[in-house]
Amino acid sequence: MPAVASVASVAESAVPAAPAVVLDGVGVRYGGRRGAPAVTAVAEVSLTVGEGEFVVLVGPSGCGKTTLLRVVAGFERATAGSALVHGAPPAPGGGTGLVFQQPRLFPWRTVGGNLAFALARHGLPRAERPDRITELLDLVGLAGYAGRRTWELSGGQQQRVAIARALAGRPRLLLLDEPFAALDALTRERLQEELRTLTARSGTAVLFVTHSVDEAVLLGSRVLVMAADPGRVVADLPIDLPRDGATDPAALRGSAEFARLRGALSRTLREAAAG
C-alpha cells in the first residue's frame, strides 16, 4: 500500500514560498536634524520580486535606484513603509549576493583566494572549497584562473570573478548595481548574455540597476521605471522575451519584438523625465 502523506506535510507543501523581495510603501529620508533640510530620496515605493524573476530598475540619476538596492541589501533602513526579503527583514548576507559597479576584489589574493574567502564566510568546510571554486569559475567562464592574480585580469574578467563571488553562497537573490557600466561595449554585451543565461538556468531572483535601455530589455523579465524628486516607481513593464537560456541573445537583440520593447521603454523613460 502506498504511503499516505500526513495532513501537515500536505499543508506545508501547499504553502507558496514568500516572494524574494516585497517593498510596501518604502520611503527613505535623509537629514532633517540640527536645522538641516530633510531630503526625500524615495517615497511610497511598492514592488515585488518573485522567485526566479529578473527585475530591472531604470531611471535618471538621483531617482533612488541604488538607495532601494541598499534597503533590500540591509545596508540602509527605510524611514517609512516596510521591506521583506524572503519573508524576513533585510540583513547583510543572509542568502543575498551583491555585485557592484567595481569588482572590489582583494588585490593581494589570487582569484581562487578571493573566492575561498567568500566561501569561508559562508561556512563551507575548507576541504570542500577547491571543488566549489572550480565549479564557480567554470560557471562564469574562467576555468583554470584560480591561481591568477586579480591585477592580471581584464576589467571584464574581474567582474566575472565578482559575480562568481556573489554566487559563492548559492544565494536565492542577486542584487546588481550597474555591474557592467565601466566596461567596453563588446565585453558588456558578452557579460550581459552570460548573466542572462546563468540566471535563467539557476532560477535565482535578481534585482538589477541600470541606466541602459538595451540592457534592461535584454535582461529583465520586468522593468520598473523610476522618476526623481522624489524617487518613485512610475511604470512596470513586462518583458515577454524567451528566457529559456537556449535562445541566442544576439538574435533577440536583432528581433522586431526587442525593438518594440526598447521603443516602449524609451518613451516611458522620456515621459517620466518630463514629469
Rank of each mutant, 00 (worst) to 15 (best):
G27T: 11
T110F: 01
P60M: 01
R232A: 09
L183S: 05
T66R: 10
V21K: 12
V21H: 05
H122Q: 14
G169T: 09
A246S: 14
G220C: 10
D248V: 05
L198R: 08
T247K: 08
L195S: 03
V85N: 05
S221L: 03
S212T: 12
P90F: 01
V22A: 13
A182D: 00
G52R: 02
Q159T: 03
G141R: 05
T48W: 13
H122D: 11
W151A: 11
L198C: 04
L173E: 01
R129Q: 11
G52S: 04
L265G: 00
R267A: 14
A91K: 03
G52M: 01
V21D: 03
F180W: 07
P249Q: 15
A228M: 01
E257F: 13
E44D: 15
A250T: 15
D214G: 07
L167D: 03
L84H: 14
V161G: 03
L57M: 07
V28D: 00
A78R: 11
P90G: 00
R267H: 08
R160W: 04
F180R: 10
T67F: 02
R267L: 09
V72G: 02
R270C: 06
C63T: 09
G254C: 09
V223M: 02
L237H: 06
Q159W: 10
V85Y: 04
D184P: 00
A43E: 14
R170C: 01
V85M: 03
A272M: 05
A185L: 13
F180C: 10
A162Y: 09
V223Q: 03
G81Q: 00
A273Q: 08
L207C: 04
S82V: 15
A91C: 05
G169V: 09
